[in-house]
């Protein structure tokens, strides 16, 4: 059983179900990637795992504990961090204040974590006093990931961290994500750049219409001719 697991999740935003018996999860120190067409329910599945929408069936467990009924805030306390796909920074606040807000639930001295985040994303140190709303898309994504890291989470969930980012910065971000995973954090992420993402993934999930189509190691999915043809552009 995975460290973080959303199992057989069925549910949606209102009366219609978006997810149908959908399962995603990740192990500690590993990277799991969720791919699939637009509207497949990838973001919805992430939100369901984070408790931002009610699931009718299925459950979410972390480290063997059932957390299905917990609020998102309570899950943050348990060691989960989430970077949403959109609106993932405080635009009117400075980069440093964004990171401080990430550490809101911590009462200890978080200057060490702040230094680590600045080491990981040096550009943020340079722009620490600039409002996050004035940063480029790629820099903003770094703020968003940095904010989530400030709680020192055990699991980091990223919804399209490389959206709107140039190929070079994307490679760099992936490198950073691998670095983060090496520190023992579990990373569950949604990616539009399926090939590159599956390349660094220990595990991959292909979703379509709220269902699991394929689940395998990243390598195996990349090698699967059906997956290549339907989702990876040949």
């Amino acid at each position: 059983m995975s460290f973080l697991l959303g199992k057989n999740m069925t549910g949606g935003y209102g009366s219609t179900d978006i997810l149908h018996d959908c399962t995603i999860g990740v192990e500690q120190g590993e990277i799991a990637v969720v791919v699939g067409p637009n509207g497949a329910g990838k973001s919805t599945a992430m939100k369901a795992v984070f408790g931002m929408l009610n699931i009718r069936e299925g459950q979410v467990t972390m480290d063997g504990e059932d957390i299905t009924a917990l609020t998102p805030q309570a899950r943050v306390q348990k060691g989960m961090g989430f970077v949403p796909q959109t609106h993932n920074v405080f635009t009117s606040m400075s980069v440093e204040e964004n990171l401080e807000m990430g550490a809101f639930i911590r009462n200890d001295d978080f200057s060490g974590t702040l230094a680590q985040v600045f080491d990981l994303f040096p550009i943020l140190k340079e722009k620490r006093n600039q409002p996050a709303g004035e940063l480029s898309g790629g820099q903003r994504q770094q703020v968003a990931v940095g904010r989530a890291l400030m709680t020192q989470p055990k699991v980091l969930m990223l919804d399209e961290p490389t959206a709107g980012v140039s190929p070079i910065v994307m490679d760099e971000l992936f490198d950073r994500i691998i670095e983060i995973a090496r520190t023992g954090i579990a990373i569950l992420m949604v990616e539009q750049n399926a090939k590159q993402a599956l390349n660094i993934a220990d595990k991959g999930y292909v979703l379509a219409q709220g269902k699991n189509l394929y689940t395998d190691t990243g390598e195996a999915l990349l090698a699967d001719p059906d997956v290549r043809k339907a989702f990876l552009g040949g």
Partner: peptide
Amino acid sequence: RAYSDNENLALLSG
């Protein structure tokens, strides 16, 4: 200020 800026993200920050 964070809550006023982005309610959802403030909730995600606890």
